[in-house]
Amino acid sequence: MAQSERITGPHIPAQGVDPVLARMRAVAARLPPQDGVAVFNRIYLSVTEAMDHAIDQGARGGFGDRPAAVALGVRFAERYLTAVDAAACGVRPPACWRPLFQFRSHPQVRPLQFALAGINAHIGHDLALAVVDSCHTLSCEPAALEDEFDRVGDLLVSLEERVREELMPGPDLLQVADPLTHLLGSWSLERARDGAWAAARAVWALRDLPSLQAEFAQRLDASVGLVGRMLLTPLPAFPG
């Protein structure tokens, strides 16, 4: 992780995740619906709204530690929003996000591919580093955030199921959608979530070895970006 990426402040906002929700809604307002980033943003906005509601419910919503939940939710969202801001300013975003920004207007990439490529970048890379960011913010070890990490993961798993239901082609297109079915069947949110937790612990363990920490985070970024590029493989247009 580059030194500039390490978050040591500011303090957790008293208004919870509202500030990042407002930024996501602003992204949605300025992008055309068919834009690949807009497709992912709609999905992520819905899960962040669900997280906000669950945090407000406290233990009933699965988040017993509000400061930890808010810290993780905000630091998680900030990494995606920083990538959006970088691309808007003509600055290259992290490698994990580059495929989505590069292919966001490609006519042969399906909305489902855009959604899962964004989820891949955000889970595989951002979630791991958001745990580390939150540990710096809260002065705690990753183990203290494990319950909140698992709850966020549960929300994301339910989201993936809904994404597939809403964006997967209908039964009448299954034959021509075989390449898409094969492509998406090779990726699993559950495995990505498990990998993110392992990566977070590894990055945290390397905090006193900054050069090794930076190398590990860079390679994580690149490998997640490679998976994203494969998820965005252009496919033949559906007939009709």
Rank of each mutant, 00 (worst) to 15 (best):
D154C: 14
D178Q: 12
F103D: 03
M230G: 10
A88D: 13
C89Y: 14
G73N: 08
Q34L: 14
F238D: 02
I55P: 03
P111W: 08
A205Q: 07
R25V: 05
D208M: 08
A77F: 00
R110F: 10
A50N: 13
P13A: 04
E49V: 01
I12F: 04
R75M: 08
E78S: 02
D65F: 12
V224R: 07
P94K: 00
L127W: 14
L21A: 09
A214P: 09
E160H: 07
V203Y: 01
F216R: 11
P234K: 04
L212T: 06
T8D: 10
V20M: 03
L235K: 00
Q3V: 03
A192S: 14
E166A: 02
F103M: 07
S186I: 00
S105F: 07
A177D: 15
M1F: 13
Y80M: 00
W197A: 01
A83L: 12
D52L: 05
A200S: 05
Q213L: 07
A202V: 07
E148N: 07
R75G: 02
A143D: 13
M1K: 10
L220Q: 03
A130F: 00
G61E: 13
F76Q: 04
L167F: 05
D52P: 12
V17Q: 09
M51G: 00
H136K: 11
Q3R: 14
H11D: 03
T82V: 13
A59W: 04
G225M: 06
F101M: 15
C135N: 00
A143G: 12
Q57E: 09
P111N: 10
E146H: 10
R164Y: 07
P210G: 09
